[in-house]
Structure formats: C-alpha cells, structure tokens
Amino acid sequence: MDGTAILPATGRPAPSRPLLSVQDLTVQFGTRAGTITAVDRVSLDVAEGETLAVLGETGSGKSALAQALMGLVPGPAGRVVSGRINYDGTDLLARPRSYTRRLCGTELAMVFQDPLSSLNPVLRVGVQIGELFRRRRGASRAEARRKAIELMERVGIPAAARRVDDYPHQFSGGMRQRVMIAMALALRPRLLIADEPTTALDVTVQAQIMQLLADLKAEHRMSLILISHDLGLVAGVADRVMLMYAGRVVETGELREVYQTLAHPYTRGLMASIPGLAGPRERLTPITGSPPDLLRLPSGCRFRPRCGFATEACRASQPDLLPVPTGPESHRAACHHAEEVVADGRSG
C-alpha cells in the first residue's frame, strides 16, 4: 500500500512527539452517483506551536480533512473510512464522537470561512463568547461577560465594552471573523484549525486577520492548521505546507523549501498561475484542463491528464509520497518524476 509513510514532525529540533498525528485518513462521501473519496490516505503531523498550511483548490479534499479532524464529517453521507487521528497520544477515531466533542474548545478549536453563518444571529456576541465560559468553566454571568470583553479586546475589536452587546449582523465581515477567532480561542485550545478564514474578506482586512492569527499563535504557543487555496496568503505564517490534489497529498515539507524547490508539477503549475506583483509581465503558464471528477478518477497519478511530465509510468501506478531526491528528508512529493521536475525548475 502506498502513501503510508509517516512524516517526521519537522526538520527543527523536534519535540518528543507531535501534538496531532494523522495516519492514512480516508474520508468518503456517498452521493447518488456513487461514492467519492474526498480524502484518500492522508497522513500529517503537527508539532506543538507549529503552523501547517493545507493548500488545495476546490475539490482537493482540504475542507473534508478539516471536518474529519474536528469530528464534523456530515453523516450519513460522509464518513471516515479508515485511518487514525492521534491527538496528544489518543486516537480520536477509536473513541466515541463525544470524546472529540469534549476536546473541542479546550484542546481543539476551529474557525470557519463564513463567520456569519457560524454565529447565532439572535444572540448578542458577548453572550455567545461568554457562553463558553459559563458552560465549560462554570463562570458566572458577570464573569463571562468580563471575559468576553477581554477576549474581544485581545482580537482587536474596537470599543469592545460597548460592542459586546451587539448582534452579529451589526459587525463587518472582518470584525465577525475576529469574533469567531475570539470564540475559538476563549478556552485556550492547543490546536486551532482555520478553514479559509479570510476568503470572504477584503485584502486589507485579510492582512489584519493573518497578522492577528500569527500574533496569537506566537503568544499562546498554539499549533495551527491553516487551510487555504492561496499559496501567498500562508507564506508569511506557516512553517510547513501540505498540498492536496483530488484527495491526495501531492507535496509536503518546510514551506520555504517547498516554495523554492517545487518538486511536483501541480505545485509548480499553481505557482506559475499566480501573476507577480513585480518583475516583467509575462504570459501566465497555467495548468491545462480542470481538476478531475472524483467519480471518474484517471488511472495512476491523478494529475496525469494535466501534467506535462506524464509518461507511461504515471498511467500505470499512483506515485508514493517520497522524499525529494535532492532535498531534505522532510520535503516529499508524490511524483514519479520529482527529480526531473526539480532539475527542470532549476535550469528554467
């Protein structure tokens, strides 16, 4: 079986064991037209205080991965078929869902893409933030309110003492996302999963939120899984990246190493698709075609029909996620021609 390699935590002086270690996670969704494997034997590690960026386009399975980590895969259509999610030494999948639920907030927390639909529209935000303290910490009403104001101040909501009594619709998109982050951080989780936290926001507000996440992460020595489609967005925050394509991990490693030495044709295609902000304006060299239909996956490597390096070997077998020959052990790519891709990138 391929793709079973367990990644070392990081290249840095590694902590004794990763906070979160996912092995061979497979998530499937039943649709009327057939079963699709949204996440296909994905493994990842996140160390204490580390930020992992999970990158991919629509249909790559990155959001299904996040749902699986939080125990939020929508049933009965979706289910985790196999794999292990080891959080701090406990396999969450071996425990009942209620176990994961108990960890939510205090250990794990999540920030979603659309803050408006994640907030209760008829409750004041202060009440929604404070409820966490009341329910989980047994705080009094006044205490919870004080804590809510404190948190709102910390996430940069101006005039927090006044705005604590406002309803979600009275906040702008950026401020709502701050409220969501405040709620996620209320109980000081050790791992925060942020699923496209800035996609709905303007670029200046996006920069604010990313700055906030980076600051908070440093302050709490919190681990962060940042899920995004934007290669540039995560560059300033993430330590490591993991790129997904059609449910599989195609490339992973230290962010800088991966971005400098693109070892998978897909990663390379994505990079080439981003118009630059400096330098000459050249014609873009995008990836041809569209992502595959998960119901009709091509044989062998899933990226093969769109790949310029594809050969017979790619049709015959799915490539394993293996260390890139010339790079450090942590840089892995799932490509039969990784060496070629790297060499081509260096010469080009």
């Binding site: 670029v203 604010q208 540039g232 967005l233 560059a235 300033g236 971005y259 902000l277």
Partner: peptide, 18 residues
C-alpha cells in the same frame, strides 16, 4: 496587503497593515 508566495524574495516590500 497582497499576499506574495515568496515574501523572502522581496525584502524591500512595505509592510502596511491598515
């Protein structure tokens, strides 16, 4: 505020967070 994929390659970029 525009995210660039290789911020280390453009060290002179201004950092203005509005």
């Amino acid at each position: 505020a525009v995210p660039v994929p290789r911020p280390w390659a453009a060290p002179h970029r201004q950092q203005v967070v509005l």
